[in-house]
Computed example of a mutant assay.
Amino acid sequence: MLPFRQVDVFSAEPWLGNPLAVVHDADALTDDQMAAFARWTNLSETTFLCAPTDPRADYRVRIWTTGGELPFAGHPTIGSAHAWLEAGGEPRGEVVVQECGAGLVDVRRSPRLGFAAPPPRRSGPVEPDLRARVVRGLGISHAAVEDMAWVDNGPGWVGVDLGTAQAVVDVTPDLAAFTDLKVCVLGRWDDQSAEDLGTDIEVRAFYADGSDFGEDPVTGSANAGLAQWLIGMGALPDSYVARQGSVIGRDGRVHVEAVDGEVWVSGDAVTRISGTVDL
């Protein structure tokens, strides 16, 4: 039996964030065991905490979806750091240092848990044929797209700027056209709406693997990639709050801040289930 937690990430209010399954002391588990449990939880990600192999790291995390392992993902980083600290983990320094497939990721603890966005694996313009597929998959017109770029920091995201938050809320994806796309979209609320809602930006993230389609409740990696792209272009301010999940009954809040050229993505994390699991 191994210690287990299920953490609600990017929300302090119950059941409004993105749930993450976390298995502690997972060094002895095989890839097949991890994959099977990730499929069984049927969450967007399940993580397994292991001893670090890099002496600079405080712990190592392996991040699994129902379809395979990821080198990096955002809400699993915050949720895993929360679970590790709650279980008694003591970082060596001011920040928690996570080891994952993408390398070392710093996780700060104040004012809330947040990770330093890893360098993009792919950035820049989207190829014309892929751009056309993304437009079809989102069910929008080419004219509706203000900008589009690769914002891939591990999962494979393409970012789309739709200008306004309402345009983001109004997206109705064409499931048949989505195939194997991973697309995150962003738009801005006007000043009055931002004040009323307590958020500046609306984000949605869609993914497909050819046989399955989903909308992610709240996505740290997508928000990180979008921020690196658009803050760097001057199209977003250095500090803002993004909302995600409102269309599917969630209400996640992602706090984004650029400091000395580095993007930090932060959010609340609360354990909702704890116990043991027999793997």
Rank of each mutant, 00 (worst) to 15 (best):
D191S: 15
L197I: 14
E215P: 05
W150R: 01
H142G: 14
A194E: 11
G214A: 14
V151P: 04
S193I: 04
E215K: 05
A144K: 02
P217D: 11
A167G: 04
W189D: 04
T219L: 05
S211K: 13
D212F: 14
V171E: 00
V171I: 10
D180F: 08
V160K: 00
N153H: 11
D216L: 00
A205M: 10
D170H: 06
E202Y: 11
V160W: 02
G187M: 09
G198T: 12
G156D: 07
G225T: 05
V171L: 02
R204E: 04
V218C: 03
H142S: 14
T219E: 00
G154Y: 12
M148A: 10
V183T: 14
D209Q: 00
F206T: 05
V183Q: 07
V171N: 03
N223G: 11
V218D: 00
T179P: 02
N153C: 07
D174R: 15
D191F: 11
R204A: 10
N153A: 14
C184G: 11
V185H: 08
D200I: 05
P155I: 03
V185K: 11
D216W: 01
G154A: 11
W189T: 09
G137M: 06
D209R: 01
A222Q: 04
A205F: 03
T219R: 09
G137E: 00
T164K: 05
D209V: 03
V158L: 06
G220A: 06
N153R: 06
F178L: 14
D212M: 07
L130V: 15
V158I: 15
L186E: 06
A222N: 08
V135E: 08
A194F: 13
D190C: 12
E202F: 07
R131E: 14
G163M: 05
T164G: 10
I140Q: 03
S141Y: 00
Y207K: 01
L130W: 04
M148H: 04
A205I: 02
G139N: 13
G159R: 09
V185C: 14
R133P: 00
P173V: 12
V160Q: 01
L186S: 13
V134C: 15
D161R: 09
R188V: 15
L130H: 00
W157D: 01
V151H: 09
P155H: 02
E195A: 15
K182W: 01
E146D: 13
A222V: 06
F213I: 01
F178E: 00
A143R: 14
P217R: 12
K182A: 01
A165V: 01
A176V: 09
R188F: 09
R131G: 07
T179H: 11
V151I: 13
W150T: 03
G214R: 07
W150H: 15
K182D: 01
D147R: 13
A149Y: 06
V218S: 06
M148E: 06
R131S: 14
V145F: 02
V134G: 04
P155K: 02
D216T: 05
D196Y: 08
L175S: 09
A149T: 03
W150I: 02
A177F: 12
C184H: 00
V183H: 08
F206E: 01
F178K: 05
G163A: 09
R131D: 10
A194L: 12
D209K: 04
A167P: 08
G214L: 03
L175Q: 13
L138G: 07
L181R: 07
